[in-house]
């Protein structure tokens, strides 16, 4: 094992790590919002909304994430190129970059998978707690915001920790569409130094530490409110 390349390529890793964290954060936040919509949509009494949510979930969960990224980046991306109006617009710098395609693909993926998780969490909140809110005069939207959703998320924290780690690892796919995330940096180092193990093992270690950090943050959140269901 030789690591002297670190001095000249270390900055690549730091930049890559930043990109990885940006991917994680952007797609995590957008994906979670989408997942909320999907989760509530799955429970909707409107048949069309319930059907739409289920179809979306099936589509996302039934196709490989890599294919979704390719469809967005190579498919939709090259479609944009053919429109001069798009090329000239202020959005072009973003649309040219693989980053946002990956963010959208990851967010859709989170929406599909976590949406299903959220649905389960919403169902797991005891009906009586919602009934108490209604009986004391809480309007429906406030009941969702103050009771239903916070309770569901509290119940789901362990699952959400797992999903977040999965998302972290999925960001590595960004390197396949020329986004210089931390794996992309490792690939670059590999190509330029002709060393294989050291850059890859360094990247593995970085992911391991990040995953551990995510777990820790969630564990803290879980402990903040002592979970022991009433009754």
């Amino acid at each position: 094992m030789r690591f002297e390349w670190m001095s000249s390529y270390g900055q690549f890793f730091i930049d890559g790590l930043t990109i990885t964290l940006e991917l994680l954060l952007c797609s995590g936040v957008l994906g979670f919002l989408l997942a909320l919509a999907v989760g509530f949509g799955r429970l909707s009494r409107q048949p069309f909304i319930a059907w739409l949510s289920l179809s979306f979930t099936n589509l996302i969960r039934g196709t490989p994430l890599l294919v979704q990224i390719y469809v967005l980046y190579y498919g939709v991306g090259s479609l944009f190129v053919s429109f001069p109006a798009v090329r000239d617009s202020f959005l072009w710098p973003y649309l040219r970059d693989g980053f946002w395609y990956v963010v959208v693909a990851l967010a859709l993926s989170v929406g599909g998978y976590v949406g299903e998780v959220i649905k389960g969490g919403l169902r797991a909140v005891p009906k009586g707690e919602l009934e108490a809110a209604r009986a004391l005069g809480m309007p429906p939207f406030m009941t969702v915001r103050r009771i239903w959703l916070p309770r569901a998320i509290q119940i789901l924290l362990p699952s959400l920790a797992g999903e977040s780690v999965l998302l972290l690892k999925s960001t590595a796919l960004a390197s396949t569409v020329a986004v210089m995330d931390v794996l992309g940096a490792a690939n670059l180092v590999r190509a330029q130094t002709l060393r294989t193990y050291e850059p890859l093992l360094s990247v593995a270690l970085i992911y391991l530490v990040l995953a551990w950090l995510i777990e820790r943050v969630f564990r803290k959140l879980e402990r903040r409110i002592p979970v022991r269901s009433a009754i």
Binding site: G128, E129, A132, A133, A135, L136, G137, M138, R151, A230
Partner: peptide, 24 residues
């Protein structure tokens, strides 16, 4: 009028068999 019902509910204090406190 759901809002009328919400308003009236605040005038009726309900206590349930299973307490139904909000655990969070």
């Amino acid at each position: 009028n759901p809002r009328q019902v919400d308003k009236i509910r605040t005038r009726l204090g309900m206590v349930f068999q299973n307490f139904n406190l909000w655990p969070h």
